[in-house]
Each structure stands twice: as structure tokens, then as C-alpha cells.
């Protein structure tokens, strides 16, 4: 199914937009229908939602907000790997950067971008991304030392802020885990290990 759809890769996002717009159009049509026509309009919307969610679910081809709901569904691997972002201070000391520094992204999102795209962008682009990471890390370091908060998510709700889908163990647990001086350099490590 996926390979069959490959030639239409450019159009598939527009088809998905169309699927959502059709849902909205069918819903709005209920407002303007009366009597038996209204009953028909409601049943048409229900039939459409059931059909599209079942189609998306069984084919596992997303059309968000109609989605496949796949979760820890693949066979797990005996080898795992991960990017580690290391900030270096003026004295040359290395500190792992807490992934909360790149909120509102969760670790999963940024880690996947790094794996897939970081080495596909040109050298200038990589430098730009590295500068952005170190700036975010620096803001997070200052925030942590001043207010005890690493990321931006908890600005209003503090501890009651919604956690991300995958919760990450804290990297910065105490002020000793961050430098008192600013980060001046970034190192990006790729770790791979046997589970």
C-alpha cells in the first residue's frame, strides 16, 4: 500500500487536508439541515468518521487528526542508540545538556530530527543548529540556576504542566550538574549500546 502511494507523495498531504476538510464540511452541513435531512446529515458524518478512522487504523497510514495510534508496536531491538548533547564551559569541563532545554520539543522529536536530518543539512546549517542548541542550553542553564526550572513548559503550571509523551529522566538534578559559567562550546556524541 505504501509503495503504491509513493508516486503520489507530493499530493498525499493535500489528500489528507482534503479528508479533514470533508469532515468539517459534513459537520457544518448538519447546522443547515432540518427535519429528516438533519438526521441524514448526522448519519453521513458518523459514517464518514467511522469509515476514515477504520481505514486509517487498519492500513496504519496516518491522516491526522485521523490517526493510526501505533504505540511501542515494532519488535524491540537489542541495540539502542541516542544523541547526547554536551555543553562545554570556559574551563573545558563537559556537562550533558538536559533535553528539557529544547522544549517545547520532547526528546523524541529532536532526537529523531538529529538522526535523520542533521547530517543532511550543509556545514553552514549544522553550525546554525549547533549555535541554536548552545543558546537554548545557555538560557536553560540560567533559568535553572535562577528559578530551578530547566525548560519553558512549566512557566505557568510549574510541576502541573503536562509531561511529554516519553518522560525523560532528569539530567540536571542539582546546580552541580550545570556550570556556574556559560557554555562556550557544543559537542555532539552518538552513543550506541547493547540493551
Amino acid at each position: 500500500m505504501r509503495s503504491f502511494l509513493q508516486p503520489f507523495a507530493g499530493a498525499k498531504e493535500l489528500i489528507r487536508l482534503g479528508a479533514f476538510l470533508l469532515f468539517v464540511a459534513l459537520g457544518v452541513s448538519i447546522w443547515y439541515a432540518t427535519g429528516p435531512a438533519r438526521r441524514g446529515a448526522i448519519l453521513r458524518l458518523i459514517a464518514y468518521v467511522v469509515a476514515i478512522t477504520v481505514l486509517v487504523g487498519f492500513t496504519q497510514i496516518e491522516s491526522w487528526p485521523f490517526t493510526n495510534w501505533a504505540l511501542v508496536h515494532t519488535i524491540s531491538r537489542a541495540k539502542m542508540n541516542r544523541w547526547e548533547l554536551i555543553g562545554v564551559d570556559g574551563a573545558g569541563r563537559r556537562f550533558e545538556i538536559d533535553p528539557q532545554a529544547i522544549q517545547p520539543f520532547g526528546m523524541e522529536e529532536f532526537d529523531t530530527w538529529m538522526r535523520r536530518d542533521f547530517f543532511r543539512v550543509d556545514a553552514g546549517g549544522r553550525l546554525e543548529v549547533a549555535r541554536w542548541i548552545i543558546d537554548r542550553a545557555e538560557e536553560a542553564r540560567e533559568r535553572y540556576l535562577k528559578r530551578g526550572r530547566i525548560g519553558t513548559d512549566g512557566w505557568l503550571l510549574s510541576e502541573a504542566a503536562a509531561p511529554h509523551h516519553f518522560t525523560r529522566g532528569l539530567v540536571w538534578r542539582s546546580p552541580r550538574d550545570v556550570p556556574s559559567d556559560r557554555f562556550v562550546r557544543l559537542e555532539i556524541w552518538f552513543s550506541e549500546w547493547d540493551v
Binding site: Q103, P104, R120, V121, E128, V129
Partner: peptide, 25 residues
């Protein structure tokens, strides 16, 4: 959820090198 991700629109201020990897479609 949106109060917990208050900086979400800021995603558009990401470095161009990251934004460029998002397909236009």
C-alpha cells in the same frame, strides 16, 4: 496541554536549517 507548551508558536523561530527540512506540503 496548550498552557503546558506555551512557547509552541516559537517553533517557527527555529534555525532556518531545521525549518527547511519541513516539507512544504
Amino acid at each position: 496541554l496548550i498552557l503546558s507548551r506555551h512557547d509552541l508558536p516559537g517553533v517557527l523561530s527555529l534555525p532556518k536549517a531545521i525549518l527547511a527540512t519541513i516539507p512544504m506540503q
